[in-house]
Amino acid sequence: MDERLNALKSILFALSDAAVFLFTRPLGILLLGATLLLAAGARLWSVLSDRRLAAKAAGEGFGMPAAAGTALRELVGLSVKAAGALPALAAIGAALVLLVGVADATRAVDEYVAGRKRIAELTATVRNLERRYKAVEARIDDVRDGRIKATLSFYDYRKPDAAAKTQTIDIGGKELFIDAIVCNFDYSEISAGKTVNLAIPFKVFSDEVPEADGVALSLLDDKGVPLMYRRSADELYGIDPEAYDARLAELMGSIRSEEAARGAGIVRSLYGDAVHRAVKTGDDFTVWVEQSGGLSVKDAASF
C-alpha cells in the first residue's frame, strides 16, 4: 500500500515540478515559448510549401506578397483557433494549478509528519540529556573546632523520594569531599534513554584529610553491588530476581573494570569524581548525576 502511494506521489510530484518549471521559471517559459514558436513556424512552413506546390501545379506564380498573405491568414487562423480553445486552455491551467496545489499540500503533509517524528525524537533526546538524578544528599549537622559532622543520604534514581541508606560522618576539615566512581555511557545510549549515567559514592574525605585516610562508605553488598541498586523480588517486573542480580553484577563488573567496560563498547568515560564544598553548620546540598556527563552539586533549596 505504501509502495503504491509512494509511486503515486512520485508521479504527482514529477508532474507538479514539470508544470512549475514550465510555467514559472524563466528557462521553462523560454523553452515553452520556443516550442510554440517552432510549432507555429513548422505549421507555416507546411502551409506555404503546400501553397507553393499547388500554385506550381496550377502554373501560377507564388511570389513574396502571396506568401506573406498566406502566412498572415494562417497566423490569424491559428489565433482564432487558440481563442476558440481558450476555455479548454483555462481548464488545463486550472487543472495544473490544482495539480501543483495537491502536490504542494502532499509535500507539506509529508513534511509535517516527518517534523512530528523529528520533534518526538529531539524531545526525547533533550529530555534524556537534561535529566539528572539524585545520588547523595548532604546535611551538615555541625562545623566546629575544625571538624565536620554531617549526615549523608544515598538515593536510588528509580526511587528518588526516599533515601536507600543514610550514614553519619565526622571528619576533620572545612571542605567536605564526596568521592564517587562515575560511569558515563555513550551519548547515543543516553539520548535514546537506553541507560543512565551512574555514580557510586564510595568515600568521604576533606581538605585536610587525604582520600587515603577518608571515611569509606559501606554501600556495597558481598557481591560488590551498591545497595542502592538492589531490588527485592516484589519490586521487579518482567525479569526474575536472579537474572536481575546477575545483570546488575555484570554491570557493576563493567564499572569496576575499565577493560570490561570498554569491551562492552558503551562506556564513554569511567573515573573518580570527588565533588566538594566548603561547609558551615546547616548547609544542605545535593549531588546530582548529570545525564550530559559528570556530577554537579546544588543547594537543596534550589529544587
Binding site: R132, E175, F177, I181, E211, I255, R256, S257, E258, E259, L270, Y271, G272, D273, A274, V275, H276, R277, F285, E290, S292, G293, G294, L295, S296, V297
Partner: peptide, 30 residues
C-alpha cells in the same frame, strides 16, 4: 563547587605517557 576528577586504583590508573583531557560540561559535570 569543586569537582576533583581522578584515577581510581581499583579500576585503572592513568597510563604513563598517555594524554588525558579534562572535559567540562556546560551543565556542570566534569
Amino acid at each position: 563547587f569543586g569537582s576533583a576528577v581522578h584515577e581510581v586504583s581499583e579500576l585503572s590508573r592513568f597510563e604513563v605517557g598517555i594524554v588525558y583531557r579534562v572535559v567540562c560540561r556546560i551543565k556542570g559535570g566534569v
